[in-house]
């Protein structure tokens, strides 16, 4: 818990310090990064804590985005729209997940891919409501009751705070009994079943939470981007968010967020030099996967543990060995 508190304080400091050094373009980029970080964390949750690799996660992102775009034409309340996005994408995750979790590994990958593409085609075909391939602009305006939020800085803080809130909620989940049990199921399903756990309930729970959160990220994105298109549900985008998770580090929460930052930054940075930026991204991904399993976050942790270990051994000469509580994590 102390660790969580420290992490949150650091994140808050980061969110509030960044505008001091960033240009307008940088603020915009950081805002997008926060949204993508929420999305990447949602996928990271099922990939790293439940062992489910989905190639259709953008489907939920699209559902959330279109909820704000379509229903937002008639409903102005931001809270209601965000709630609707979460509930609709969560419900769809619950219903489809009940079928999907019966498959595993490659079959899960394929069936989620099909799910994402189905939504992609649906948004494309429902032209009267969604504008079809042309997409549609979002008329709903972000307003939490303190006035309309339209400035880049306003968006920046909203998304930054949303990122922190959902990081905390996810952290609580992975430390909770249900979260620990889900992780146990990922490591050893037969054993957890023999211990008396209904493994499907936990898998479905994780999938539903993940889908709901991806929907929320999509809803936030719709407000931010004021334009949605079927591509938000396409397999390319599902693949990109998976790359974010892998670059950052599977099995952690901040890893995918870090991966999202690197991905979005490089995407914007490199695309000013060359149209072929995905090649550079691909090379980076290959290098990362070959050089170190576990992604960027594990390198950071490794560096930290080296530093801490050196400090510890230095202290150990004069002090008692490691105290009881310290060896836990």
């Amino acid at each position: 818990m102390k660790k969580l508190l420290l992490g949150v304080v650091l994140l808050i400091a980061l969110v509030f310090a960044m505008p001091l050094v960033l240009s307008d373009f940088g603020i915009n980029l950081a805002t997008e990064i926060y949204i993508m970080a929420i999305f990447a964390m949602s996928l990271g949750l099922i990939m790293g804590y439940a062992g489910m690799v989905s190639l259709g996660h953008a489907g939920f992102f699209g559902i959330g985005a279109y909820t704000v775009a379509v229903i937002g034409q008639h409903v102005a309340n931001t809270y209601l729209l965000l709630l609707l996005s979460v509930v609709i994408s969560g419900l769809i995750a619950l219903v489809t997940g009940a079928v999907f979790i019966r498959t595993s590994k490659f079959y899960f990958l394929m069936i989620t891919l099909a799910f994402g593409q189905l939504l992609y085609v649906l948004f494309w075909q429902l032209k009267p409501w969604t504008g079809g391939a042309d997409g549609m602009s979002v008329s709903a305006i972000l307003n939490f009751g303190f006035g309309e939020i339209v400035s880049p800085n306003g968006f920046y803080y909203v998304m930054g705070i949303a990122f922190i809130i959902f990081y905390i909620l996810l952290r609580l989940f992975v430390e909770s009994p249900a979260g620990k049990i889900t992780k146990g199921i990922m490591e050893n399903e037969a054993r957890m079943s023999a211990l008396g756990y209904n493994v499907r309930v936990y898998k479905l729970l994780a999938y539903t939470l993940s889908g709901a959160l991806a929907g929320l990220a999509g809803a936030l994105y719709a407000y931010f981007n004021v334009f949605v298109s079927p591509d938000l549900s396409g397999w390319m985008f599902s693949g990109q968010v998976m790359v974010m998770v892998i670059i950052g580090g599977v099995g952690t929460l901040l890893g995918p967020a870090l991966g999202a930052s690197v991905f979005i930054y490089l995407q914007n940075f490199m695309s000013t030099y060359t149209e072929r930026w995905p090649m550079v991204m691909g090379a980076l991904l290959v290098a990362l996967v070959l050089a170190g399993k576990g992604g960027l976050i594990h390198w950071l942790q490794h560096g930290k543990s080296l530093f801490v270990a050196r400090k510890r051994t230095g202290e150990a000469v004069s002090q008692q060995p490691v105290k009881k509580g310290e060896a836990v994590h």
């Binding site: 818990m1 609580l172 989940f173 430390e175 909770s176 009994p177 249900a178 979260g179 620990k180 049990i181 211990l195 008396g196 756990y197 309930v201 729970l205 939470l209």
Partner: peptide, 15 residues
């Protein structure tokens, strides 16, 4: 935890 009523709890830490 398999026999605990809070095994479906998603908020408070297990420890």
């Amino acid at each position: 935890a398999a026999k605990k009523p809070y095994r479906y709890d998603i908020f408070s830490p297990l420890i």
